[in-house]
Design a protein around this nucleic acid. Structure first.
Lengths: 197, 197
DNA sequence: GTCTATAGGCAGATAGAC
DNA sequence: GTCTATCTGCCTATAGAC
């Protein structure tokens, strides 16, 4: 039986693989997937490149794991919103808040960043990336449809089409605001997008 | 006096520097600035890497020239729109058409791509990038203000704020649509953005 | 202006000791 | 699991012949 560890502190096990992903995620969100190397991760963790390859044999594998975990965490955040809030407009406000918290950390959405690099990504990462966007769109479309039925929104067109443009608009707002280094700019655009519904 | 060349064909001089920029532009728009090398350009032009360095001593220099030329061409396109069209809504339709023509070539807007890579860019490129966005926003803000005064638009908020969110939304729509490889998706979003004004 | 040749460094990745 | 050592290849960039 596996021994319980760090029970006193209440701090759960953090595996090396997780710590690698943590560092890689920040690097990928700030510099892009092609903008960092195993050496960057290794130096930040005080270990060697060879050790990283034990956990993630190739960079493509690392990237795939990165997107998968990001997707899981995002899905969990959406589930939390669904549990905590029932009002569609407030759901969307919180959804935009997820992007805002990324902006405040001076990062880009991981998947927005990877979308820019799409043509250079291995197939497994491409597939995972599209899955992330699809999940976001489905969630958004459901909220939008529900909100319009309830009279909270009055947008034209299908909920699906709206979901697509909203997703793109938030990613783009983040992309440009980050270049300006201005998070108020992102919030102003996000508010406007939601007010337009 | 410099001898006239290619007068018979009516084809103007295309300098080597221009041809280098042409190839580099496509590469930067599809793979990102960190996603291509001098070797890629050289092989496409049938010349050596060393020759490229004669025209552009460093990759940063090449990138700066890339953004500067892109900005010039974009400004010229906006001037053409201003000359050909007076109706604000139609001006914006043509503006979105500029992005659409990029999408149809399976490329990303050069500056949207560079915005993703912002933190890895040399200072000169960052400055040129922001200048591009500023010019776009100024043009958009003027058209939006004019259109609202004329009763064509009824958006809320300042024209400047609208210009910022419109620019971001178009860049983001392009970014995501490109990952899906679906240009109809881009056009649907663009239409929606303009209809919302 | 374009070439050959090469420098010097960093990339992702592997072998094998501990 | 982590290390040292190393491989192979590509990167940006330069020197100097033509």
């Amino acid at each position: 039986m596996r021994p319980a560890k760090a029970v006193e502190t209440g701090v759960p096990d953090v595996t090396t693989a997780q710590r690698i992903l943590d560092v890689a995620e920040v690097l990928a969100q700030t510099r892009g997937f092609n903008g960092f190397s195993y050496a960057d991760i290794a130096s930040q963790l005080g270990m060697t490149k060879a050790s990283l390859h034990y956990h993630f044999p190739s960079k493509g594998e690392l990237g795939r794991a990165l997107v998968a975990r990001y997707h899981e965490n995002f899905a969990a955040a959406l589930a939390t919103i669904d549990r905590a809030v029932k009002v569609p407009a407030e759901k969307l406000r919180r959804y935009a808040g997820l992007y805002d918290s990324v902006m405040r950390k001076d990062r880009m959405c991981l998947c927005g960043m990877l979308a820019a690099e799409y043509s250079t990504l291995p197939e497994a990462m491409r597939t995972a990336l599209i899955a992330f966007f699809n999940a976001n769109e489905s969630w958004l479309a459901a909220v939008l449809e529900h909100g319009r039925e309830g009279g909270a929104f009055s947008f034209r067109g299908s909920p699906k089409a709206r979901a697509q443009s909203l997703l793109g608009a938030l990613e783009g707002a983040l992309l440009v605001a980050r270049a300006y280094g201005d998070d108020r700019r992102f919030r102003a655009t996000a508010k406007q997008l939601l007010d337009d519904l």
